[in-house]
Design a protein around this nucleic acid. Structure first.
Lengths: 343, 343
DNA sequence: CTGTTAGCGCTTTCAG
DNA sequence: CTGAAAGCGCTAACAG
């Protein structure tokens, strides 16, 4: 890491007034030129355009949106930029291409996003102005419809009033648990997500369903809340693995907590998958980088973002046939963190 | 994929005027309450606050920034949300935590970001208002200082006038090439990045340096431009691999083009690494997911974002000792896409 | 302590 | 065809 040093004073932004003065016209005329409105002499238009180019003028998104309430910018509101939301972002980026819209991803300052209601706050701050519509990633509020059209990805209470895109969490969780069952596991722990998210609830339900179908009663001691974050999963994972009668396998409600569990297991001297089988959920790119690579349930995160943009665009066009709920399939990805239980 | 259908009319945003009316005070007073200014009777303040809570009022970022020119929002400007920029984003998100700032990542509509000068355009649109400072991810313009403090990550012409964060591209490229050389390769192709990026130039230089040190002349036919994107890399990769005397190994200037090359090789019936060794650059999470997993040069993308935020924050505080250039180390990650050349 | 006033940069009637 | 003027939601003097 090398260092150098200097300072620079940034010069002022060029505004529409600067252009108007330089071109010897009114700001109204400049505005018309910028927005290609009719009623401007070709000669004037060209002269103004020349000044715009020379000065490098670009209209302020802020000022413009305050006035015209149409920005051609879509907002993606996330609590934090972590593997799940950034995958979604990749999908939105792909979908936005060629639509004439631009993307603005907004995230609070880390912990700020932890406090419930962040999505409402962000939405209020940005909507009505700045963005024409918003995509909320894992919002915890049931209803946030405030000013602009909104699409939710994997929201709180499942199909709410908001148009929603999610994936088949239940089927995925069943598949994960059945995989463990098929391997011969009987004591299977569940490291839950967040109680306020529907996805989390469904994953737990899938776990219970699969167990019930196999005729295995759920041991409450084996079910914990991991909070969907690596750090918040550490403690419950530790509790689970240090039980008098610990589970031989753990199904973690998302990859981040599975990765946290993997680290805890290693710290405890447990080998994966020999001593402990581990299944995650999401299939974030990071899940393949662990040692051993994580068996997990693939959820098409990029597609979630892609579909959300499509839906939002339809909503903006006011199309009545816009689907209100899109659900995508999940599938098990077998890697090397799962195996038969010992003896 | 399941579908349902309905419609909803979003209601209007609540503004400061609504609050003022409901509370029977002027907007100025509401503003003072919101911003915790002195000079408001406790009783009035409480009454206004109650209305704010009841109405769920949240001040508009846009209107506020237009007026006060201080938003506590940092912008991250990217051409597109792809693996590199999203990794950087994760790092910025971590760094922003607890600073009192929020993050706004802006990306044009895909292709729009392709046209040179996107960073200048975005910056103009957002700065002066909306964001207090910006981080430019792989900008191609030398100087963009326009209104607000700016930090560049992996910019055009290396250490420009802008404060910069980058990684040691030269050393990384040398390491990659030497790895191939050590394996016994002599005909090593180079799939370059974009001519307008310093990182790309340095990676090529590293390639040439390592070959020269090994006493191997560079065959111009083996050097192509891949454009740093998977799709743009496909054609040059194909040309390279279908040469009369094709290379036994290819060093691609980034993982995305390496992955593109991998697909081309497979399409051509070439086995990796038996028939062709492949090294990438970046170590994006996706690089470990390929089959075989890619040998690549690790570049600390999240740290790039993290350091950029730190630097920008210092710039905003006006600290004179702000380093102007931070360079992070790179390192070779050996996975399974490289091996000895046949016979 | 509170309200009035003047814009921030821009778009949009509406006269001239 | 062009410009003056109003106003988007908000903050910052300045009066009252």
């Amino acid at each position: 890491m090398t260092l150098e040093s200097t300072t620079r004073a940034p010069r002022r932004r060029v505004t529409i007034t600067d252009v108007a003065e330089a071109a010897g016209v009114s700001v109204a005329t400049v505005s018309k030129v910028v927005n290609q409105r009719y009623g401007v002499a070709v000669e004037t238009s060209e002269r103004v355009q020349a000044v715009i180019d020379r000065l490098g003028y670009e209209s302020s998104l802020v000022a413009r949106s305050l006035r015209s309430h149409r920005t051609h910018v879509l907002g993606v509101l996330v609590a934090e930029f972590e593997p799940f939301s950034t995958e979604v972002l990749k999908g939105t980026s792909e979908a936005i291409c060629g639509t004439g819209y631009e993307l603005l991803a907004y995230s609070g300052g880390g912990r700020a996003g932890q406090q419930p209601g962040w999505e409402r706050r962000y939405l209020s701050r940005l909507s009505g102005t700045l963005i024409d519509g918003a995509i909320l990633v894992t919002p915890t509020l049931v209803d946030a419809g405030d000013g602009v059209p909104v699409v939710a990805i994997d929201p709180h209470a499942g199909p709410t009033h908001m148009p929603t895109v999610d994936s088949d969490n239940l089927a995925g969780a069943v598949a994960a648990t059945e995989h463990l069952l098929a391997l011969g596991h009987r004591r299977i722990g569940f490291l839950g997500g967040r109680e306020d998210l529907e996805s989390s609830r469904l994953r737990e339900e899938g776990y219970r369903l699969a167990l019930a179908a196999a005729g295995i009663p759920v041991d409450p001691a084996l079910v914990r809340i991991g909070g969907y974050r690596k750090d918040s999963a550490t403690r419950p994972a530790h509790e689970l693995l240090t039980l008098d009668e610990p589970p031989t396998a753990v199904f973690a409600a998302n990859d981040l907590s599975a990765i946290g569990t993997l680290e805890v297991a290693r710290g405890l001297g447990l080998r994966v998958p020999e001593d402990l089988s581990l299944v995650g959920f999401d299939n974030i790119p990071e899940s393949a980088l662990t040692d051993p690579p994580l068996t997990t349930v693939h959820q098409p995160m990029q597609r979630l973002g892609f579909e959300a943009v499509q839906m939002l665009l339809q909503l903006l066009e006011g199309r009545a046939d816009t689907p209100t709920h899109v659900r995508l399939d999940t599938s098990l990805v077998e890697r090397r963190s799962t195996g038969r239980p010992r003896a």
